[in-house]
């Protein structure tokens, strides 16, 4: 009983925090001046109903590019740290002897679920400018599909060359769209290189869907590479 006391206290405190959040919760209705100007500007200037995605992929797109670069550095760093040149082969061989294969049910379920998760990730990425979601979230869901594949079959080999090439290509295209914005529109990563279209339609908000797709592909590939490296 005594050794459970600290964990019980921790849970109680956590419950207290959640209770205060839940009881005091109210949807914010009055906006602060900055928020209000964004809420007014984004649909008008960028044609995107989802203000967050509009900000992330246009006003703050350069920061987004930086974040993806950080993720890329993480992927590279994990590879550098976890790779043990001499021991790698021997260790993985002994591991595969000890590792128990996943049960048939989990393997079949993974085969059934991965395509469904993939189409849902595509939906999240493509609808970033209209509803919740966008490149980062969709990329994370893609990586979760890859993780499910790896859980079902730990010896599965990911095609890391394909992943790296796709990831770099998406990054290059992202920057190219940004440069196109610099030449044809108001500045680097301006979304008005493509027509804004009708507000709220599927193809609208200029280059935001395109950027979102590129971002999703890039994030998905990077996270998959990280997962792959952690496994080895």
């Amino acid at each position: 009983m005594m050794q459970r006391l600290p964990s019980a206290i921790a849970v109680l405190l956590l419950a207290l925090i959640f209770a205060t959040i839940a009881i005091g919760h109210a949807e914010q209705t009055v906006l602060r001046p900055l928020a209000e100007s964004y809420v007014r500007l984004v649909p008008h200037e960028l044609g995107a109903p989802n203000v967050i995605t509009g900000i992330l992929l246009t006003y703050r797109a350069f920061d987004t590019l930086g974040e993806v670069a950080v993720l890329f550095m993480v992927a590279a760093g994990v590879g550098l740290v976890l790779k043990e040149p001499g021991k790698a082969g021997a260790r993985s061989a002994s591991d595969s002897e000890a590792a128990q294969p996943a049960s048939e049910i989990v393997r079949t379920a993974a085969q059934i679920l991965v395509p469904l998760i993939a189409i849902f990730a595509a939906y999240i990425i493509m609808n970033g400018h209209i509803s919740a979601g966008g490149g980062f979230q969709g990329g994370a869901v893609i990586a979760s599909a890859v993780l499910l594949m790896l859980l079902a079959d730990p010896s599965h080999k990911l095609n890391s060359v394909f992943l790296s090439v796709t990831e770099s290509l998406a990054g290059v295209l992202f920057v190219l769209v940004g440069i196109a914005g610099l030449i044809f529109a108001g500045g680097f990563l301006d979304n008005r290189v493509l027509p804004l279209g009708q507000f709220g339609a599927f193809f609208s908000a200029g280059a935001i869907p395109l950027l979102s797709v590129l971002l999703g592909v890039k994030v998905g590939c990077e996270l998959s590479v990280i997962l792959d490296r952690f496994r080895a």
Partner: peptide, 13 residues
């Protein structure tokens, strides 16, 4: 449908 598909599988695992 998603919960019907995943919940038995996770409890089986």
């Amino acid at each position: 449908y998603f919960v019907f598909m995943t919940n038995p599988v996770s409890s089986h695992a």
